[in-house]
Amino acid sequence: MAGFAGYDMPISYPSGALEEHAVTRRSVGLFDIDHMGQFEISGPWAESFVSRMVSARISDLKVPMSRYSLLLNEEGCVLDDLFVYRLPESWWIVVNASNREADLTWFRSKATGGVSIEDRSDETYMIAVQGPKAIQLLDAVGTVPASATERFGWCRTEIGGVPILFGRTGYTGEDGGELFFPAEKALFLWEYLLAKGSELGIETKAIGLAARDSLRFEAGMPLHGHEISTSINALEAGFKWACDFSKDFIGKAALEAIAARGLTRKLVGLEVSGGVPREGYEVANAQGRIVGSCVAGMFCPSVKKYAANAFVEPTLAVPGTALKVIIRGQPKDAVVVKRPLYIPAYRR
């Protein structure tokens, strides 16, 4: 178990992190992610407010759609990454646990009249159902077929009598979805999904934090505090695609100035031989000069490689560039690779 943003969370269940990772890639992984925060924003000025707060375009978001976005500060650095759901009467914002309080304060500090911001985190539970057979499982147990919902779409459904907001999203690279529902039904729904998986012959297992991290890492998704943070701007982290420069948003001016000046570093993937790269390890060029550092690194179970994400000087951020990662004082061979390392079957 590990403390995470005030929650006690399992690093792995008894089957171990590698097996949990593998189950999610071959069948279904169940993730207890109640630690995620949810805000509901409504009112006559809600749309223009949300649009100014988040980097992505939301003006074209219609019911029942959702979109990934960044929450930036005035410097263009990343306060958090989040999902914006367009509900009929409101905007449903899903944020990271460790940033929930700071995000809420940030949203409230920027709010004007005609905007209401409610923290729904405590009353809302969240379970993610991820893997190539996740939709099959959800189709079998839900009153509304999950397969009828497009990727990044959502629907209202019921599973085992529990009313659910289902979003076809996730943090593993696999197909599947995330379930939002009343917190008091959490244990019931968790056990119901495991039991139904077993009954239907769809292998379904509980997944801990370690596998959650390796799954998202292989799939090229950022973890706040690593690939993105309040000291990392959206452009150097490679998130220009999540910023709509045709609208006004907090951080836009700073990003335009950064783009005009040129980046001083860029996020890259590194494949490393002869050791496991970890957060904080330095990156050197072939001559031994330090040119950056790792923000995350691990053994990647599906691609069977040791890999890191690192910020390096922009001229080196080219796939094929030979670098070194310093592991316990020893420079180990590394090469810049394209991210993500893993692309699931349904997107190939």
Partner: peptide, 8 residues
Amino acid sequence: LGDIVFVE
């Protein structure tokens, strides 16, 4: 330790 992924 859990799953071992590298031994040097």
